[in-house]
Simulated assay, not measured.
Amino acid sequence: MLQLNIQDETSRLRSVVLGTAKSCGPIPKPEAAYDPKSLEHILAGTYPKEEDMVREMDGFAQVFAKYDVQVFRPRVLKDCNQIFSRDIAFVIEDKLVKANILPDREREFQAIKYVLSKIDEDQIIYPPKEVHVEGGDVMPWGEYIFMGTYTGEDYADYITARTNKEAVDFIACQFPNKKVKSFELRKSNTNARENALHLDCCFQPVGTNKAILHKNGFLREEEYQWLLDYFGSENVFEISKEEMYNMVSNVFSISPNVVVSERNFTRLNNWLREQGFTVEEIAYSEIAKQEGLLRCSTLPLVRD
């Protein structure tokens, strides 16, 4: 059996679900796009090819093998995009929470059933249907759980709004010993440079006390300021709108001193090395065209 344990974003990783790009189906029709960046590439004829995405994910799997991490992959479903396993579930402490996601993504959760069978049933939480939540918006960080949300009256108009106020309340109720801190994110269905799809698109902790941050991803300046003060501006790597668009905050930590990053993130990767991190650079720019990157395609189960 798996003993789930996730207290933060960066402790030594032991077990993870890595999505799969196999049989991810034909290029979606524009009206079926989940986010503005995918739409942009569909319309431009630059939507990523399956073989390129499979190769990129295999490169990620090789890094996990190098660090002796146990990797589960979803059962491959025909013509189904299963790259972003962070969207279907997430772990906090010793509980796995099933994400309530866009209804046509329910099959993706079923494809990790064999992994779930290794977890005690009472460790799995199924939120009620009014709770909308995806793993990209949820970050355990010691005594805190950071959550991205959107609570505007027009929530229902945004396909890019994935985590609602009910989810923030639900998580606070499930984990009463944690402080749940929510952040209102900027949403756009049409402009990928003005859209923070998830919290990990504009913020992510690295190491034990550092963070990557993009100010414009936050609707309320005081919430961005809270993070800046919490980590300390000297420990924060600020990214530009263009870097957010390229998913620069969406790296992935294997341990407090090892970060997997996209090889084109030169400015970030140099900064990480200056801060003493080992940076494992891989190619992931084709997957980035779907407004998701390294953190989005992982579902960590066990960290030390």
Rank of each mutant, 00 (worst) to 15 (best):
Q82E: 05
P300Y: 07
Q70G: 01
E153T: 13
E243H: 12
M244N: 13
V133D: 01
V259T: 04
Y155S: 05
K181P: 01
G19R: 06
S285D: 13
R107I: 04
S249V: 10
Q110M: 10
S253Q: 13
L18C: 03
N209K: 14
L294Y: 01
L227A: 13
H214P: 00
V133L: 11
D169K: 15
S11H: 08
D8I: 07
V69D: 00
D157M: 15
N195L: 08
I42M: 00
P103A: 14
F170D: 03
E56L: 10
E143W: 04
G207T: 11
C202F: 12
G232T: 13
D52G: 09
Y155E: 09
V71T: 12
I101V: 14
L197V: 10
R86A: 15
G232F: 15
R263K: 14
A172I: 10
N195I: 07
Y34K: 01
V138A: 04
I27D: 00
R162I: 12
G136P: 01
P48I: 09
L197K: 10
E194N: 11
S11A: 14
H41D: 09
I6Y: 02
K113H: 09
I282Q: 06
A161V: 07
Y47E: 01
L299R: 00
L185Q: 13
L18R: 03
T278W: 06
E31N: 02
G232I: 15
F64Y: 11
R75C: 06
L185W: 06
T298D: 06
V279K: 14
L116G: 00
S182G: 03
L116R: 10
I254V: 15
I88R: 04
S261V: 06
N177I: 03
R105L: 09
G59C: 11
L197D: 03
G217E: 13
T20V: 04
V302R: 05
N257C: 09
W271N: 08
K241H: 10
V69T: 07
R107W: 03
N250G: 11
I112Y: 02
G207D: 06
Y230M: 15
T149P: 01
I6A: 03
E242K: 10
C296E: 03
P256Y: 13
D304G: 08
S240R: 06
H198P: 01
L268E: 05
Y67I: 09
N177E: 15
R295Y: 09
W226D: 11
L197N: 06
I125D: 02
I159M: 04
T10P: 02
V206I: 15
H198G: 07
L227E: 05
E166T: 04
V236Q: 03
F237Q: 03
H214V: 08
P140M: 07
C80W: 00
L77Y: 12
K181F: 09
S11E: 10
V16Y: 06
L219E: 14
D157Q: 14
K187D: 00
V16C: 12
C24Q: 03
V206E: 01
V279Y: 11
M1K: 12
A211D: 06
T298N: 15
G19D: 00
Y126H: 07
T46N: 05
S117H: 14
W226R: 05
I254R: 09
T298Q: 14
A196D: 05
Q204E: 13
A167V: 13
T266A: 10
K37P: 00
R12L: 10
S255C: 12
K129I: 07
D229G: 12
K98E: 01
A111K: 02
K215E: 15
Y230V: 05
V279I: 12
L213F: 02
